[in-house]
C-alpha cells in the first residue's frame, strides 16, 4: 500500500480486457444453459454453482478491479466470502446430518 494518494497512479484496464472478460462470461452462460438441458443427475446443480462461482470471480477480479486493488480490498472480499461460505457449510452440516 502506498502512503501518498497523490502518487497513487490509477490502474486503467483497457477496453480489450473488458471485452475479453465479457465474451468469457457469455461463453460460460452458454455452457451453463446447455449443461442444464442435459441430465447429469445430482451433479447438474454442482456444475451450475461452479460455473456461477467462476463467472462471479471474473466479474469481481476484472470488472470490479479487485485483482488490481490494494491488498486491503482483497482481504475485505476474502473475509466476506469466507464468512458466507462458513455460514453455508455449518448450516448444511446441520441439515445433512438430520
Amino acid at each position: 500500500m502506498q502512503q501518498n494518494n497523490e502518487s497513487h497512479k490509477p490502474h486503467i484496464v483497457g477496453y480489450a480486457t473488458y471485452i475479453f472478460v465479457w465474451l468469457s462470461l457469455l461463453a460460460l452462460t452458454a455452457v451453463t444453459v446447455t449443461v442444464a438441458g442435459i441430465n447429469f443427475g445430482g451433479i447438474t446443480l454442482l456444475i451450475a454453482i461452479v460455473i456461477a462461482i467462476v463467472k462471479s470471480s471474473l466479474v469481481l477480479n476484472i470488472f470490479m478491479h479487485i485483482k488490481f486493488d490494494d491488498v486491503v480490498f482483497k482481504v475485505f472480499v476474502g473475509i466476506a466470502v469466507l464468512t458466507l461460505t462458513a455460514v453455508f457449510v455449518f448450516t448444511f452440516f446441520d441439515y445433512l446430518s438430520r
Partner: peptide
C-alpha cells in the same frame, strides 16, 4: 452495478435452470 450482476449470476441457474 457489478454486484447486482453477480447476484443475478447466482439467481439465474438456481431458479431458471433447474431441470
Amino acid at each position: 452495478w457489478h454486484l447486482v450482476d453477480i447476484i443475478w449470476i447466482f439467481l439465474f441457474p438456481l431458479f431458471y435452470l433447474l431441470r
